[in-house]
Amino acid sequence: MSVPKDRWLDRDAGPVVRPYAVTMGRTVPASGSYAGLTDVVTAVADGGIPAGAHLSRVHRRILGHCRQPITVVDLASDMDLPVGVVRVLLGDLSQYGALRVVAPPRGHETNERLLRNVLDALQAL
């Protein structure tokens, strides 16, 4: 059995086009900041895309997917795109004003309330 020259391209490697090709090689969002995994993304209904902004097919698919609020991980999972790629594209769309990224509220009381809600829900499973 011959050993593949590139051991990264085995059966589990996924699409042969490397995912970062979708971002044109960019691995860091244009703004330099990353959306958190459980940040909630919502397309802005009347978000005007600036003239000259380049929106790819994948950008548009993302916009279509987040008409309702959705977390970054669910978006990546639904679209079958790696999280890192989604973050870069979200960065573009956020800069264009086409969507909003909202971090979950944090703080002592918020965390405790969330935990108690999760506890109740788990017990009721």
């Binding site: 703004s31 940040d39 977390t71 956020s94 909003r100 909202v102 971090a103 969330l114």
Partner: peptide, 19 residues
């Protein structure tokens, strides 16, 4: 190093807990 996006408070954010 990661930095988080500047974010805004929304009125209703679906609560997501992570374990």
């Amino acid at each position: 190093h990661y930095r988080h996006s500047d974010t805004v408070e929304a009125e209703v954010v679906p609560a997501a807990a992570k374990i």
